[in-house]
């Protein structure tokens, strides 16, 4: 039953991301929270990890765990990182809360060889249902806010995100669709994925010749 709590959802999301990262690589986790993913990647995948986190509380928690994390903001501080600094730049459940997602994605593209992004899919049938039938802004367990207090100011669907990747010449290496305890892989997300995925994880790279990701 705990599979449907936001915490369990978040954990599935992190495990899927960790699965996509090659061992021993250099990783930047943007919006790393209290460092759960970085800790997982450091211990399980021996990555050389760095984090950016907005909240002081989060940064302190990370520093206490021995993680190298700086206080900063995805919208403001990515420009401080040099080109090609990381093998993977990760943004989990954060892009929808940024002010300028396109610019954030472009910066990630510059900093890292590969990008891993997870986000809640606004195309999920339950969300569509709430808006279509009830005429109210959707509130779900993955998007548990009212319209007036949500930090999620730039929500998108799986198809929207795919379109932005194409626009930025980002090569989609792999996508993982998550719903409840389901986790399935699709080559190119289509209408079905857009309807049934509650969350999506995209592994993209700026270069189609990059070695294929671990599947």
């Amino acid at each position: 039953m705990s599979q449907n709590t936001p915490e369990a959802q978040a954990r599935i999301d992190l495990l899927v991301i960790a699965d996509l990262v090659e061992p021993g690589s250099r990783v930047l986790d943007i919006g790393c929270g209290e460092g759960d993913l970085l800790h997982l990647l450091t211990t399980e995948k021996q990555v050389d990890g760095r984090g950016i986190e907005l909240s002081q509380r989060g940064v302190n928690a990370c520093v206490t765990r021995g993680l190298s994390v700086v206080q900063g903001d995805a919208d403001e501080d990515l420009e401080d990182y040099p080109d090609d600094a990381f093998d993977y730049v990760i943004l989990s459940q954060t892009i929808q809360a940024t002010h300028n997602p396109r610019e954030v994605l472009a910066q990630m593209q510059r900093i890292g060889r590969r990008i891993i992004i997870s986000f809640p899919n606004f195309g999920h049938w339950r969300i569509r249902w709430q808006l279509a039938i009830h005429g109210r802004m959707p509130v779900t367990h993955t998007l548990d806010y009212q319209w007036y207090n949500t930090p999620n100011i730039h929500l998108c669907t799986v198809l929207d995100f795919t379109a932005l990747c194409n626009e930025l010449d980002l090569y989609i290496e792999q996508t993982r669709m998550l719903s409840g305890d389901q986790d399935w892989r699709v080559e190119v997300p289509g209408r079905r994925a857009n309807l049934f995925a509650e969350q999506a994880v995209f592994l993209v790279s700026r270069d189609p010749v990059a070695s294929p990701a671990k599947s």
Partner: peptide, 10 residues
């Protein structure tokens, strides 16, 4: 960060 250093910042 540019020098791939090991830094935390608060």
């Amino acid at each position: 960060n540019a020098a791939a250093g090991n830094v935390s910042f608060v």
